[in-house]
Simulated scan of single mutants.
Amino acid sequence: MKQNIREICKTLRLAYVADVYEKISFENPEQFLYGVLDEELKLRENAKINRLMKKAKFLDKKSLHTYEWTEQIRFPPHLTKEELCSLKFIENRQNIVLVGSPGTGKTHLATGLGRKACERGYEVRFYRIAHLVEELEQALHNHRLSVFRKRMEKVDLVILDEMGYLPFSKEGAELLFQIISEFYEQKSVIITSNLEFSQWNKIFTDSRLTAALVDRLIHHAHIISFHGESYRLSHALSKRN
Rank of each mutant, 00 (worst) to 15 (best):
P29D: 07
V36Q: 00
L14M: 05
K10V: 06
S25T: 15
F26M: 09
V20S: 01
V36A: 04
A15W: 05
Y34F: 13
E27W: 13
L37C: 09
D38P: 05
Y16K: 04
Y34T: 10
D38H: 06
L33S: 10
K42E: 11
A15T: 07
P29L: 08
L33N: 15
N28R: 07
F26N: 09
K42G: 03
Y21W: 08
Y21H: 03
V17R: 01
E30F: 13
L33H: 15
K42Q: 14
T11W: 12
E22R: 09
L37M: 13
Y16Q: 05
E22T: 07
K23V: 04
E30W: 12
A18F: 05
E30G: 12
K10D: 07
L14E: 04
E39F: 04
V36F: 00
E30M: 11
E27N: 14
Y21P: 03
E22F: 00
L33D: 11
I24Q: 06
L12A: 14
A18R: 02
P29W: 09
L41N: 15
E39D: 02
L14F: 01
D38I: 05
Y34G: 14
Y34N: 06
V17A: 09
Y34E: 10
Y34M: 10
R13D: 13
L37F: 06
D38N: 14
N28C: 09
S25I: 10
A15N: 08
D19R: 05
L41W: 08
T11H: 10
G35Y: 04
V17F: 05
E39H: 03
L33M: 15
Y16N: 07
L14V: 01
F26S: 15
L14Q: 00
Y34D: 11
E30S: 12
R13M: 05
A18V: 01
L14P: 00
K10A: 11
Y34P: 02
D38G: 08
L41M: 14
L33V: 13
F26E: 14
A18H: 02
E22W: 02
S25G: 08
P29A: 11
A18D: 04
Y34K: 15
F26H: 14
T11I: 13
A15C: 13
R13N: 14
G35V: 01
E40S: 06
L37G: 01
Q31I: 05
L14Y: 00
K23P: 03
V36P: 00
F32G: 03
S25K: 14
E39Q: 10
V20E: 01
Y16V: 04
E40H: 02
L37P: 03
R13A: 15
F32A: 14
E39T: 02
L14K: 00
E39G: 03
G35I: 01
A15F: 06
L33Q: 14
Y21F: 11
K42L: 11
Y16G: 02
F32V: 07
P29C: 11
S25D: 13
C9L: 03
L37E: 05
E22K: 02
L12C: 12
L41G: 10
D38R: 06
T11C: 12
D19V: 06
E30Y: 15
L12K: 07
D19F: 04
